[in-house]
């Protein structure tokens, strides 16, 4: 029997529920921590970022209007499909982050658990951060959280799956749609997550994943007038770049989650900060019935 030829994968982007090639036509080699070839990934350009924002905006109406219960079910389903791809995630995390198999397994398990944890928040967040307000008049007065809109997420550079899940899931919980710029050197778990999302019940465009150099897409996303918020987690440790992105984001008063000085320990308890960062509060005065 002849020796089997290796299948070398060349991945594409994930935009609007489809897997298009980058407009730039460029791709780059992804290697493991020892420099061995893993796969080719697409080099997203600013036009891909623009297309991703259009797709995310288009998907926003449907996703934000879905009931919280329904969003929860869809996100649980994502966790189920992730569980089915567990072995692949473990391989990719181990190779990309240079972890032992045991540590990689632990990271993947934590990622899936985190996704489930966030999925549970879809129909609870309004009860925790919403309120019924006491007013001196014959009115019901209540405040409800609503999604901010299209959120550009710069995924962490080092923690390729747990970090990614920890920044992406909280954006989706409340009904935002996301454009994710993945880790440059470790994009494979993000690509696989894209395949997971495409085969679960998440509507196309709710999550869009761009691989490639952050400098090629992040400034355009930060300056884009149709992006409502930006999470700069991926710019951790690069103060100069983070500052420029914040300046660009200021033009249309985007909500900004600032880049930390160094990438945090993603295994820590996440809390609600990342969910509440991408919420708007709507307060309604309603006359008490006669």
């Amino acid at each position: 029997m002849s020796e089997r030829l290796a299948v070398k994968k060349t991945y594409k982007l994930y935009i609007g529920g489809k897997f298009p090639r980058s407009e730039s036509g460029r791709s780059y080699q992804v290697t493991d921590t020892k420099g061995r070839f893993l796969a080719n990934a697409a080099h997203a350009s600013r036009k891909d970022a623009r297309d991703a924002v259009v797709a995310a905006r288009k998907a926003f109406a449907g996703w934000s209007r879905a009931t919280a219960y329904n969003r929860g079910q869809v996100l649980y389903r994502v966790a189920e499909v992730m569980e089915g791809r567990r072995a692949q995630f473990v391989d990719e995390v181990a190779a990309g982050e240079g972890l032992s198999r045991g540590k990689a397994e632990k990271a993947v398990d934590e990622s899936i658990d985190r996704w489930v944890w966030y999925a549970g928040w879809t129909d609870k967040i309004a009860q925790v951060v919403g309120s019924s307000n006491p007013v001196a008049g014959p009115y019901f007065d209540f405040s409800v959280p609503e999604p901010t809109g299209v959120v550009a997420v710069l995924a962490p550079q080092r923690s390729s799956l747990l970090g990614l899940v920890s920044v992406l899931a909280p954006v989706l919980v409340s009904g935002n749609t996301a454009v994710v710029a993945s880790s440059y050197e470790r994009p494979l778990p993000a690509i696989t997550l894209g395949e997971v999302l495409a085969t679960s019940d998440v509507p196309g465009g709710v999550v869009n994943i761009l691989t490639g150099r952050m400098g090629d897409t992040a400034p355009w996303l930060a300056a884009h007038m149709d992006v409502n918020a930006v999470d700069l987690a991926g710019a951790a440790g690069d103060d100069e770049h983070a500052r420029e992105l914040e300046l660009a984001a200021a033009e249309n008063l985007k909500r900004v989650v600032r880049a930390p000085a160094d990438e945090p320990d993603w295994t820590a308890e996440p809390g609600l900060d990342r969910i509440t960062s991408f919420l708007e509060t709507k307060t309604v005065w309603h006359p008490v019935g006669i």
Binding site: R50, A223, H224, M225, D226, N252
Partner: peptide, 9 residues
């Protein structure tokens, strides 16, 4: 302006 515009404006 050099930045992508949005329909909100």
């Amino acid at each position: 302006t050099g930045r992508y515009a949005g329909p909100d404006y």
